[in-house]
């Protein structure tokens, strides 16, 4: 049992990341790559930015409009993959997607992001919990279907 299984703690982490999202800004460094994510089924509309130094993600951010779940999940994502290598980041993202697919995953890799595991039960919110993650995957050259 991890502290992240506690519903109240999970809620507070989401609240905190929604009200004070981390890395929520447009990256304007030279050679920044970006991926715009919007959907016709919901009103989330965000862009993920990444800057690479060799194989390392030396900066990552996001900006746009999103609900609590999309904003908080993307905020947590940016904390998790900043400073990681592309390969490490891909592995983290795949574990997250597996968690939402109710497949085996490694909670240690996901840290706080495990608070979103119950989202897999609200079909209409999975989109929100993955929009930023799919954007990041795209910047890392991976295509993840919804």
């Amino acid at each position: 049992m991890s502290i992240f299984d506690d519903k109240a703690i999970a809620r507070d982490i989401i609240m905190d990341n929604y009200q004070n999202p981390h890395n929520k800004k447009t990256l304007d460094k030279e050679n920044t790559q970006s991926k715009h994510m919007a959907s016709d089924s919901c009103i989330d509309d965000i862009t993920v930015y990444m800057h690479f130094e060799g194989e390392t993600i030396d900066d990552v951010s996001f900006n746009g409009i999103g609900c609590t779940i999309s904003t908080a999940s993307t905020s947590i994502l940016t904390d998790l993959i900043k400073g990681k290598t592309k390969q490490e980041a891909k592995t983290i993202i795949h574990n997250y997607m597996d968690m939402l697919d109710e497949k085996p995953y490694d909670p240690h890799l996901l840290q706080e992001a495990v608070i979103f595991k119950d989202i897999s039960k609200s079909a209409n919110r999975i989109h929100c919990a993955t929009i930023g993650w799919r954007g990041a995957a795209a910047l890392l050259g991976e295509k993840i279907d919804e």
């Binding site: 999970a10 809620r11 609240m15 609590t68 779940i69 919110r125």
Partner: peptide, 11 residues
């Protein structure tokens, strides 16, 4: 409240 909305999304 925002708390309740988040809780609603988490069950």
């Amino acid at each position: 409240t925002l708390e309740k909305c988040i809780e609603a999304a988490m069950v």
